[in-house]
Write a protein that binds this DNA or RNA. Structure first.
Lengths: 218, 218
DNA sequence: CGAGAAGGTGACCGGGGGGTCATGTTGTGC
DNA sequence: GCACAACATGACCCCCCGGTCACCTTCTCG
């Protein structure tokens, strides 16, 4: 889908720089969040600023590339957990895995929490993630491990929420989120209670960035 | 503590502008988050930029003033709920109230989620809030409405977390957070399960902004 | 009402951000 | 080994932000 036709052969130093750039950007975004400057990323990759813009026309494009790579890794993880026998345990393990990823990546949290940062490609990746997680959740529902009205979208949203809950504690106890995962997962278990309000959509069609909400200044 | 001795009489237009400023800043921060410019706030208050800096020496001071006002309102709400008979219901109602406040204030969310934005005064206000909420939670514990190892700090953290969970859904369903409050509160209920890991501290002594963590760009 | 101080103003400053482009450099196919 | 296209570079542009300050306006008190 990235349109690399065989006709055009990329130069060796170009692909090397691209790799360095992706590595540096991944690290820089993870450590500093979406507000790292392109200059910093270039420095960390050992290239000039212009080179960054040659490979990624805008900062959003670079961010989107990094985020998609992360989201797809998460989706692959969900795919793997799909093969476990104990669907409830697998779902919980997947959540722990996802929250761990979030805890290690500030930019990931920024993007999850601010729809206006979401490139169209990123939204598609999130949708794909929701689909896979819905499969995982469906198996847990069938096995009675979670209540019947829990959806895959719920789980994906909880990933960000649980991490955010524990965030202020993370520098003293990096695994503080485990406490809130316990609490949340207990809340997910099947019970005799009334149906939950406001079922979420299957796909997270977030507000388009051009919308009236989410003003950012001026 | 603000040192307004009777000797110095503030001028009438000064107090008027200060009030306009606080109102405008409250609204602007709520709508746009902590990244609104001082220029925008000045405009919305109908004064010049210099006037803002006359009343609040730095942007952080202004933000802190707004946040403390909000945190104290929340603490007062907790105080009121303390008088209810059904401690469990009161705790849940308080949480709903707090999440509603968060949902209506982007800057509040920003500050909660980013300790580096927290002025010393704000941290103290958060600590005061934790204390009052601990009282509220203690009563719920005694009445068996929540499990024995839930603390006030847990509840305060969950406020931000639950809101964050529902955030992507808010522009289609403003009350989407109710769903996740149900889930979380179910998870809080007393149960026969093992003790929760990583009990949080009574006071949220967050990492000081000068710490090694939370780099923002270099 | 008049003097003087407190307050208001907006041009201005230094810093830093994203993004561009003319110029210099290097890998590559013939 | 040559010529050329692709690539790398960093000075540069424009914009916006937080914060300052010399100058002007307006309130207050006697």
């Amino acid at each position: 889908m990235t349109g690399r036709t065989a006709a055009v052969q990329a130069r060796a130093d170009s692909v090397r720089n691209r790799r360095l750039l992706l590595r540096a950007a991944t690290e820089a975004f993870a450590e500093c969040g979406v507000d790292v400057s392109m200059h910093t990323i270039a420095q960390r990759a050992g290239v000039a600023k212009g080179t960054v813009f040659r490979h990624f026309p805008t900062k959003d494009d670079l961010l989107a590339a990094i985020m998609m790579q992360l989201l797809d890794r998460l989706r692959e993880a969900a795919d793997r957990f799909l093969r476990a026998d104990d669907a409830g345990g697998a779902l919980k393990d997947f959540m722990a895995h996802g929250i761990g990823l979030l805890a290690a990546d500030r930019a990931f949290c920024d993007v999850i929490g601010r729809p206006s940062l979401q490139h169209a490609d990123v939204r598609e990746a999130i949708d794909r993630l929701c689909d896979t997680v819905e499969d995982l959740t469906g198996r847990a529902r069938e096995q009675g491990a979670v209540r019947g009205d829990i959806t895959g979208t719920d789980i994906v949203l909880l990933l960000g929420g649980i991490h955010q809950t524990a965030q202020p504690l993370l520098d003293r106890e990096p695994r503080a989120w485990e406490r809130f995962l316990e609490i949340a997962f207990d809340g997910l278990r099947a019970r005799d209670r009334a149906t939950l309000p406001h079922p979420p959509p299957a796909r997270l069609r977030m507000a388009d960035p051009s919308g009236a909400s989410a003003p950012t200044g001026k």
